[in-house]
Computed example of a mutant assay.
Amino acid sequence: MKKITYLLLALVLAIGTLTACGSSDKESETKEAAGKTIKVAASATPHAIILEEAKTLLKKQGWDLEIKVFDDYVQPNNVVESGEFDANYFQHIPYLENFNKEKGTHLVNAGGIHYEPFGIYPGTEKKLDELKEGDTIAVPNDTTNEARALLLLQDNGIIKLKDGAGLEATVKDIAENPKNIKIQELEAAQVSRVKDEVAFVVLNGNYALEAGYSVEKDSIAYEKSDSEAAKTYVNVIAVKEGNENNEGIKALISVLKSDEIKKFINEKFNGAVVPFE
């Protein structure tokens, strides 16, 4: 009787051990699977579109890419700073640096992916030489994008900025305005919506796309690929400082800079989005 009892006890212990091992293995697998997910906050166009194309390539490497679209320029940085998301993809370096300075965040550039040529697009007028005295041109009102818009207007002879204004230029830095053009400053997403009310609009590349504009076909003038602006305003994958060398971030950057994604960008956006080399 004692032998049977001992045998039963040994069997129970053995089953318990196996169950515990199985449970441990499953927990390990679950943790490993969870660790293979990359969460990215992005603007809808073109960033989320490019990320969707990258999903398949990342999946082949064992990574699940989760994308959440935001329609503003603040929350994508906040959710990366808080750790809720691994990275974001919506901004250029000057905006990132200015955001860190103003908000006290600790975000860094993990890799440059593309740039979007800023363009001047028709409103009530179709050609720049049709500008009349006192006409209005709408531009983005955030610090870095307004400067970029004003520099493009200067390059096309509409205004002249004070020497040294550069990438921090505002309407207060306009030194010469021969036709007394009014500069209407609006939140970036709103600029295209007033195109029927102003002579011209100056748009970020992604908002031009959302408005149905083609840089090559519709813009009156735009930044060239070899311009200082193109190099300065490359759109980046941003992460919290210290995470730029994480395995998932490295995989994400590698895929986004791959020949497959470069080809997709060139074919999809017709010059409105250009891969950054």
Score class of each variant (00 low, 15 high):
D129W: 06
I120F: 09
R148A: 12
G134E: 09
A14R: 04
A199M: 01
H114P: 04
V74K: 15
S43E: 15
H114W: 12
Y95R: 02
I174E: 06
Q61T: 14
A48S: 15
V69Y: 08
S258T: 01
Y6P: 02
L128V: 05
A87H: 07
A229I: 10
P94W: 03
V255I: 13
K59S: 15
A211W: 03
N141P: 09
I49N: 13
L128H: 05
A169Q: 04
Y95A: 02
P76C: 07
P275E: 00
I38P: 12
L107P: 01
V171I: 13
F200I: 00
K126D: 11
F276G: 04
P140C: 05
A211D: 05
L18N: 06
N109L: 05
G22P: 07
N109W: 04
L96D: 00
V239Y: 02
E133T: 02
I4P: 00
T143S: 15
V79I: 11
S192D: 11
K55A: 13
L252P: 03
E247C: 00
G123R: 03
F264S: 05
T30W: 08
A238M: 03
Q154E: 14
D259K: 12
L11D: 06
V255C: 10
K3C: 06
L18A: 14
N98Y: 09
V274Q: 05
N266Q: 11
L151V: 12
I265P: 01
L7S: 09
S192Q: 13
G212N: 03
L9I: 12
P76I: 07
P117H: 00
Q184I: 01
K160T: 14
V274F: 02
A189W: 10
N235Y: 11
N88W: 06
N77V: 07
V201K: 00
L131R: 04
L11F: 13
D196N: 14
P76K: 09
N77P: 01
N156A: 06
G164H: 04
K268Y: 01
